[in-house]
Design a protein around this nucleic acid. Structure first.
Length: 264
DNA sequence: CTCAGTGTTCAGTG
DNA sequence: TCACTGAACACTGA
């Protein structure tokens, strides 16, 4: 579930449901992989009896602002999720962290594949791995002029460069494909060979996709009907709504879905 | 049974 | 030193 729009939805939900409330109970799974750089026990101790002041996000990383540092930082990997619910029976499978918050609200981080990470941080701007992130594509998307020189240094397919979190924090596989589709640029094109009109289109499409996706609170059904998103994994049909053929190939280590007829 | 997957990191190479 | 590629990580569901 986790690219920028999904993480932003969670951030807003935390602000709305949990801000101002105190964590009364914490349960942790004995998972030395998902808990990174901290034991589950210590992690629990730092959260218990703390008040949640709000939630911050940069790229795909989310942290809870507590009344005392350190703060918990969540990364969702491929399958991580945060559930907010009231009935304990709704606790999801693969739970790694369970919070009981004042007012009977429960928050559970779950992750089947265990590529997500739970950390403690003191400062999102200074502590790795957050400090390695580039500008957030929702809050701080660079202008086309700023993007020019950064892309000019990269001799890799634009698809791979879009996934580089040091350049475009928050972009993931589906957003990269969507942005390239909407800006009519082939994912194979080398970043350094894009012209100004193309960079302009790319930047514009990226701003549009991230804004619209966040505007719907990442509810996929509400993404505009013309988006590639709705058909990119549909292997049966393998066509866009307009009947253009969708191709799948590995670029930059990930599967790209794209429309050669339209993307050059 | 096999394979791909809305992600990141690290070793190896140029 | 910088940048790129591919493998590893771990596990589910098609």
């Amino acid at each position: 579930m986790p690219e920028l729009p999904e993480v932003e939805r969670v951030r807003r939900a935390v602000e709305r449901e949990l801000a101002g409330r105190t964590i009364t109970r914490v349960a942790v799974a004995e998972d030395r992989i998902v808990y990174a750089g901290v034991s589950p026990r210590t992690f629990a101790k730092r959260l218990r009896d703390r008040r949640i002041m709000g939630a911050g996000r940069r790229g795909k990383y989310l942290w809870l602002v507590l009344d005392r540092k350190p703060w918990p930082c969540l990364h969702f990997g491929m399958t991580g999720r945060l559930f907010l619910y009231r009935d304990a029976r709704e606790r999801p499978r693969f739970h790694k962290l369970d919070l009981l918050v004042e007012g009977g609200i429960r928050a559970t981080f779950s992750d089947a594949r265990r590529l997500g990470r739970l950390r403690l941080i003191r400062d999102p701007d200074i502590d790795p791995p957050l400090s390695a992130l580039g500008p957030d594509v929702l809050d701080d998307l660079p202008s086309a002029v700023q993007l020019g020189p950064r892309l000019a240094r990269r001799r890799a397919p634009i698809k791979a460069v879009l996934l580089d979190q040091a350049l475009f924090a928050g972009v993931g596989n589906w957003m990269a494909d969507e942005v390239l589709y909407q800006s009519a640029i082939s994912p194979r094109r080398l970043a350094c060979e894009l012209g100004s009109p193309e960079i302009l289109r790319l930047r514009r499409a990226l701003a549009h996709v991230v804004r619209v996706a966040c505007g719907t609170d990442a509810i996929e059904d509400r993404y505009p009907a013309g988006w590639l998103f709705h058909v990119r994994w549909d292997r049966r049909r393998g066509r866009t709504r307009r009947g253009e053929r969708i191709v799948r190939e590995t670029i930059g280590g990930r599967t790209a879905a794209w429309v050669p007829e339209r993307q050059r």
